[in-house]
Design a protein around this nucleic acid. Sequence first.
DNA 1: CAGGATATTGCAACCGATTGCACAATTTAT
DNA 2: ATAAATTGTGCAATCGGTTGCAATATCCTG
Lengths: 347, 347
Amino acid sequence: MIKTSREVTIYDVAKALNLSPSTVSRALKDHPHIKQETKRKIRSVAREMGYRHNKFASSLRLTKTQTIGVVVPRLNSYFMAAAIAGIEKITSDNGYGLVISQSQESARKEAACISTLFNSRVDGLLISLAADTDNLEHFNLLFSKNIPVIFFDRVSDCYNCMRVVIDNYRAGYEATAHLVEQGCKRIVHLGGSLRRNVYSDRFAGYRQALADNGIAFDQRLVFSGDMSELSGTVTAQKMIRMKPRPDGIFTSNDTSAVAVMVELLDSGIRIPEDIAVAGFNNDPISHLITPNLTTIDYPAREMGEIAANALISKLGNSESASLSTIILRHNLVVRSSSLRNINNNKK
Amino acid sequence: MIKTSREVTIYDVAKALNLSPSTVSRALKDHPHIKQETKRKIRSVAREMGYRHNKFASSLRLTKTQTIGVVVPRLNSYFMAAAIAGIEKITSDNGYGLVISQSQESARKEAACISTLFNSRVDGLLISLAADTDNLEHFNLLFSKNIPVIFFDRVSDCYNCMRVVIDNYRAGYEATAHLVEQGCKRIVHLGGSLRRNVYSDRFAGYRQALADNGIAFDQRLVFSGDMSELSGTVTAQKMIRMKPRPDGIFTSNDTSAVAVMVELLDSGIRIPEDIAVAGFNNDPISHLITPNLTTIDYPAREMGEIAANALISKLGNSESASLSTIILRHNLVVRSSSLRNINNNKK
DNA sequence: CAGGATATTGCAACCGATTGCACAATTTAT
DNA sequence: ATAAATTGTGCAATCGGTTGCAATATCCTG
């Protein structure tokens, strides 16, 4: 039989000092009504006795948890790792705890995550949507209790919801326009689910860039996938077999872009001479692969920090200005995977 | 003023049905003493009324939270993402929640994470240690309350603690021996903090493999760093400048291995002809870079699953057999970064 | 139909921290 | 020295779900 030492409570501390639990409670949270010396004594005895604040009792009483929930599609990308690092910095600086969960790109699992987080009474939620989420019904719980929700990166139109994003349309436009400038005429696009702003906006940017440069849009050049390595490989194989072969590709993340490159290079296709490649995200791999990958840089950590800050300020004053969308800068990083030396020396 | 609709509790549900809260509580958790029809009625009314289980009240009463804490050095590696995916699968299958936090490789932050998790009364803890943790004092809280702790990957000697690892010594040995087989005589090793088993064991394996092959150990060939890209780049620069130039390198992760490769290739050094490279982890990048990277494959997801399973079974029966260490298989994946065709065709 | 076995439900006391309000102690003002 | 003001502590109710045990309802057997 294991001796499970019972919890030390403020009652125990109070008894030891011949004080009341109220006083102990107040002393531990530095309430101004308690005498300095009393506070000192209480704190020291509490430490000695091994007292530890019980979050549940407190949360139960306060109906606040000082905890923020985070739901992301997956953790396994540099983007998300960086965004979460940013979130964590801000929340922990502000005394909030963090509960992180993954939707695995599934709306069903996303709903389950939200439900769990709701049951654990998070004070607020930061979320980047799953690939196949197509409505926000599973958020109604939160909305009905006025629990603030902030979307970042993969956001949704939602009345009165705050969102932190980049201008995916412009980024997609710039990447595509850059390929055009480099002389590409038949530019493939590989994107993710059009349900997600990040992919549909980039796609829209791609189309507009083509239009503005007098290049006819060709649906056969557009592919859609889960943006995994595999989807890049498959797309590259299709490109290789296409009759008039494409001469450029803009793909919506670096993971797939790199897979495309590997597959093309394996087939003896030259990058960028035969096919120029542009990705998205500026993952570390983009400057490790040969040739280095042209991509869109994208302030992941900052996005996390800003979203977290916005949430916390919303938690503070319930009436905080309803800034509804924050758009962060992005940046086209041109590298050798798309840079043709032809007519481009310093021009 | 926002109307914050009050919580719906089992009391409300009970009142609506003219039943007692006890009955409602039992019905909602499918207690066998409650009549089927009563359960149905209660569940349906509860749903209609918008009842939601309050985890705090429950946890407070039960002094159990059905929550498991996870502390990892960083989230931004494929290894960790995979391990966490494994953990999440098992825990969610078993009805446990997960709270994930990062120590950022700092013992101080690790202690803070543990303290927070302890205050939120996690039922158990899964942890992979930070680089500079050198004692387990910050675990005493948990130990004193008999909260089970399971170490995975980056573990520690700890009386009566369960650990899930691979045989890093053998893996290090095999990687090094492989380089020797390929004809390397002056093999550099780049590792992380020797406080961590993963790095010290791999290093020990490296030394033994040299010894067993009659190669004198040379301290000047050993470098230590934080295993970031930068540490790889710096190490490569040093290698390039060394008098008799090294002809091989075994580095303890793929991130740094790839950085080493990029730097060496940039200087016109051929891989594997001039310098053969072996990494560790089998990150996706290892088969994307050119030449493909030889590395140690390492069952990340499985490690997470096994650790989580072990923890859950320990939570179930407090007397569970004290399997103290579980060692998973690993696998040397030979690719072109180390494969010299010299005398090696099928031999 | 009696009498006990079995199936259902309710009572009430927890779990531990918080806080409005009342009361006590100490200081200041008159 | 006494009233008034200020400071410091304690009382007791509250947050919502759980559960041992008692109480009531229903079923069975002969």
